[in-house]
C-alpha cells in the first residue's frame, strides 16, 4: 500500500517503542556498572534529577497540550527515559573503546550532560509522535513576530522546560546520532534542523554561555588566530 504521512508516523512510533521494549525504566546492569566504577557514584543524583525533570515536563506538557493529555506526557517521558538510558550506555561503551578508561565520574556527575541527553531523548520521542514540528511550531511564529504559542511543544520548547542552554543541548546531538544508528532518517533530519537553529540563532541570544567561552578564548590569547566576523 502507498505510504501516507499517518502510516509513516505509525511505523516510526512502532519502531521506537519496539526498540525500547528491551530497555528498562531503570539503568541496565551494564550502565549500573559504569555508575559503580565512578569515583563518586552518580546513581542517586541521576534518579533524583529524573524525578525533578519529570515534574517540570509533565506540568508544562499538560499546559501546552491540554490537561486531559497529562497521561500522554507521562508516556512520552517514560519513553524518553528509556531512550536516555539506552543512548547513555552506547555513548559510554564508545568512550570506553576510544579512551580505554572505565571511570567516567566527571561526565556522569555533570548535571548539564544528563539534562542535555534527556532533552535530546525527549525531542526524539516528541518528533516521532509528530508533536515537535517546525512547520506549525511556536519558534517560527516567534521569529515571525507573533506570540510564542502555548499550544505546542516544538523545539526549542524543551530547552525552556529544562532551563537548558541551547549551546549545551548542541553538544550532545552528534554523539546522540552516532550512538543510536537505528534512528530514522526523518528524526536525524529533525535533530539536524535543531542543530542548525541553535548554530544560526538560538546560541547567540543574550545570556548564552557561548559568549563567556568566546571571552575565555580571547583572554587565553587565541584571539590573534581568529578570523574577523566579516570573513
Amino acid at each position: 500500500p502507498p505510504q501516507t504521512p499517518i502510516r509513516a508516523a505509525m511505523t516510526s512510533i512502532q519502531q521506537l517503542r519496539g526498540e525500547l521494549i528491551s530497555t528498562g525504566d531503570q539503568p541496565s546492569a551494564i550502565l549500573d556498572t559504569y555508575f559503580k566504577n565512578c569515583t563518586v557514584d552518580p546513581t542517586q543524583d541521576v534518579l533524583k534529577r529524573l524525578e525533578t525533570l519529570e515534574q517540570a515536563f509533565s506540568q508544562r506538557f499538560g499546559q501546552a497540550v491540554g490537561p486531559r493529555c497529562v497521561v500522554l506526557g507521562k508516556q512520552r517521558f517514560t519513553l524518553g527515559v528509556r531512550l536516555y538510558y539506552k543512548v547513555m550506555e552506547a555513548m559510554l561503551k564508545s568512550e570506553e573503546k576510544r579512551l580505554s578508561v572505565q571511570n567516567f565520574s566527571k561526565l556522569l556527575n555533570d548535571s548539564t550532560f544528563h539534562t542535555s541527553l534527556l532533552a535530546c531523548s525527549l525531542e526524539v520521542v516528541m518528533a516521532t509522535y509528530g508533536e515537535s514540528s517546525f512547520k506549525t511550531g511556536g519558534y517560527i511564529q516567534e521569529v515571525a513576530g507573533g506570540d510564542p504559542t502555548e499550544t505546542d511543544v516544538c523545539f526549542p520548547w524543551i530547552l525552556d522546560v529544562f532551563n537548558l542552554a541551547a549551546f549545551d543541548f548542541y553538544k550532545v546531538i552528534e554523539s546522540f546520532i552516532k550512538a543510536d544508528p537505528t534512528m530514522s532518517k526523518d528524526i536525524v533530519k529533525h535533530l539536524e534542523t535543531c542543530e542548525n537553529l541553535i548554530m544560526e540563532r538560538i546560541a547567540w541570544r543574550r545570556g548564552s554561555p557561548l559568549f563567556e567561552l568566546l571571552k575565555q578564548e580571547h583572554e587565553g590569547g587565541a584571539a590573534e588566530q581568529l578570523e574577523t566576523p566579516a570573513s
Binding site: S94, L99, L107, D110, E174, K185, V188, E192
Partner: peptide, 21 residues
C-alpha cells in the same frame, strides 16, 4: 542511512565536549 554530516574528529567525543577528558 542518512545524510547527517559528522563533524567530530576521531579524538573527540562526548567527554571532551563536556570538558571531562
Amino acid at each position: 542511512s542518512h545524510d547527517y554530516h559528522f563533524g567530530l574528529e576521531d579524538h573527540e567525543g562526548i567527554s571532551e565536549l563536556f570538558d571531562c577528558d
